[in-house]
Each structure stands twice: as C-alpha cells, then as structure tokens.
Nucleic acid binder design. Structure first.
Lengths: 203, 203
DNA sequence: CGGAGCCTTGAGAGCTGTCAATCCGGGTGG
DNA sequence: CCACCCGGATTGACAGCTCTCAAGGCTCCG
C-alpha cells in the first residue's frame, strides 16, 4: 500500500532534479510570486515563510484558497495547465524553491514509483479540498469553526497558541468578528477549551 | 505539453486492465455505492446515470461535494486512502464500472505515460475543487449563482434546459428558494437571459 | 507612558433560511 | 376534453444569523 508521501520522500523526488532546473526565490510580505493568468513556470516549495493562493472577486473581496506553509508545495496543479488559476502572495517574508515544469514532467515520465508518490500527494490534496468545500458550505458559523478546528487539529486535537483569528477566519470565509463570536459559543458549549498558554483544546 | 485527458485516453488506460479486475454495477435511484468509512475497492466510472458524493453533517443536513455524470470518474482519491471520505449515492438509476484498486496501482507503477495522464486528471480535479471552494465561499447568493453558472457553462456559455434548481442549489449550499431569487436578480440585471426553450444564456 | 495591532463586544442593517401559499406543467383517470 | 393531482418553481412574510461599522480592551514593544 502506498501511503502518504513524507517529507523525506519529497526530498528524494526533488533531489533527482538537476540543480540548474531549480531556482531559489526570496519574496517579502505582500510580494506576488505569480498572478492569475500567468504562464506556469513550475512547482514551488515553501522553504520558510508562508504563501497564500488567493482569488479576487470583481467586487474586491479576497478569498484564500490555500495556505502553503514551510515544507509544503503549491501550484502543483499548474503542472498540467497553460495558465495559473490563482494569485500567489507572500503572507510573510519567505524563501521558495521553484522546480522547473519541463524537468519535472520528464522526471515523472521516466520514473514510475515517483509517479505513484506524486499521485498520492495529489489525492491527499483532493481530499483536503473536499473537506474545505464541506467546511465552507456549512451555514452555521460555530459549526463551521468547529469543523475547521477539527480539520486543523485532526491528529493532536489541539491548536497551538499563536494562531491568528483573522487568518483562520479568512480560510473559512468568515469575518474575524463572526469567528470570535462563534469561538465564544463553542467555549460556552464546552466543545473547545481555551487553555492558559493560549492554545485551544478540542473535546 | 500534456493536455487534459480525453475520454479516449481514459479508455486506453482502462483497457489495459484485465476484464476480471473490472466489475459492472447497476444501482437504482437512492442506492448507496459505498459509505463513508468503507474500505475503498477501486475507482468507479459512471457509464450511465448520475452519482452524488455527499456528506451528512451531524445536524442532518446533506452536502453535495461532487456530482459524477456519465463518463466521469469518482472515488479517484480513494486509490491512496484506507477509507472512503464520502457517501456515494445514485441520483438516478445508473450503471457503473468499478476498476480494482490493486490492479490500477500496478498498472500505474509499470507504465509512465499513463501516470502522467492520471496526474493531469487529478490536477484538473484539484482545479475544479478550488473553483468550487471559491464559489461556495462567495457570500452573496446572486454572485455565487453567477460564478457557478459560469463554471458550468464555461465553454458553451449556456445552460441546457432541463436543469433542476434543487440540484444546482444543493451544489453551492443554497436553498432552492434563495437560488430562485438569486437567479431572478441576475435576470433583472440582464446578466442571465431565460430563453424560450428553457435554457439559460450567460452574457 | 503611549502607540500599534489584534481581539472582543455592541448595535443596527441586510441577507438568507424557514415555512407557507400560490403558480405552473405534465401525467392520469374519468 | 376536462378535472384532478403531483412535483417542482416561484413568491411572500418573518425570524435568525452574519456583516458592517464603531467602540472599548488587551498585549506587546518601543
């Protein structure tokens, strides 16, 4: 059984790519890595920092589709696409590695175990997205927050301190105010406990 | 450049699977193909009819995550998963083909051009899901309907007659009433035209 | 101490969900 | 041919919830 790709398996994959085919990129908070409609140049890995994939509605509202943190990939789907479908914006000062699209495709075409790992990565991405659709489709704000917290802490059942309400609210299409109220509701219901160190514990 | 996998490429892929590894399945309206938590047995193709991937919130509300129509696959992501993440329910009487999970994985491991096609399929699925997240995250009902109609008719700019408001509303987490009102708003704004044959034209 | 940034809380408006009534088209049976 | 019924779509009325805007609170940091 092929399991979820671990970080070291990622490294094994990418280490086969010639150095000349990878580019180190430094971006500062607010910089655009690419914009919607750009021709995709490859897949990106976040080495440090954080990059958001966002879309802007024509009414000016911004929507976070994905939050890529250190160690994660983004723009995977653009491997097979003629244009980028989101804006990629640095949420913080970040360093990225870009792996050339053509080199990756060649690598995939010549190697098969790697192809399986890639597919498992894609499959996990699909499942995460379905989960996100489920969360965002939930009408009640407190249920939406509850599902999202469960999703975030599905292993540790605990949300680390230092979380930022504004970011969490963005991810599930709520305003920070509504998120705050919803969280208060969950705490009142004893479903979430605010711990003294600032973390959240799910029950 | 690898382009989107066409239906004939699908056929080429699946034709390499031994007949003994594929099962024909007939289901009637309302039948469950599999349930959340089941051990995945393979990937399914809808030959005729329609299958919905849904989740039930514990408050009893049903959410449509995906609508697989004739010619489409579903449960792709479960290839690399130990359990199904949705219920699959027949929306109409349908015939399905199930391709055995193990056979597919072997096929992928031994063939590389096919692996690329599979990945392109997954990549398209990911893009569709991101679009769905974008749509569902849109707060205004009429804007949500507008985005969804654009997504549905992104090639023909027209929605065929015979569409069912209830189903469309389900897909974007709206009530039929709210959908109806939103559609009326779009028609009043001349962004959508109801044609005499019952189809919708986008402008 | 003072400011900045974020979270929290409050009040009101706007929008969607709910429930109910009505309309419309297709199918059935007299 | 017509009355009737049935399912879905539409429309109306109202409650409930979230968004918006505004006003404190809190922590961190200079």
């Amino acid at each position: 059984m092929i399991s979820i790709m671990t970080e070291s398996e990622f490294d094994a994959l990418f280490s086969q790519i010639k150095p000349v085919e990878r580019v180190q990129i430094r971006v500062e908070t607010g910089d655009c890595v690419f914009r919607r409609g750009d021709s995709p140049e490859g897949i990106y890995r976040v080495e440090s920092g954080e990059v958001l994939l966002v879309r802007h509605s024509h009414s000016g509202q911004m929507l976070t589709l994905h939050r890529a943190q250190a160690g994660q990939l983004f723009a995977e789907a653009s491997l097979f696409s003629e244009s980028c479908h989101c804006d990629a914006v640095a949420e913080r000062d970040s360093t990225l590695t870009r792996f050339n699209k053509g080199a990756l495709l060649e690598l995939l075409a010549s190697s098969n175990a790697d192809a399986l790992r890639w597919m498992s990565y894609f499959a996990r991405e699909i499942q995460n997205l379905r989960k996100q659709v489920e969360i965002v489709s939930t009408r009640s704000a407190s249920e939406r927050v509850w599902l999202h917290l469960q999703h975030l802490g599905n292993t540790q059942h605990e949300i680390e301190p230092g979380f930022v309400i504004r970011k969490l609210a963005d991810e599930i299409a709520l305003t920070p105010e509504a998120y705050s109220r919803a969280l208060k509701t969950l705490v009142d219901q004893r479903r979430v406990i605010r711990q003294s160190n600032g973390s959240l514990k799910l029950s």
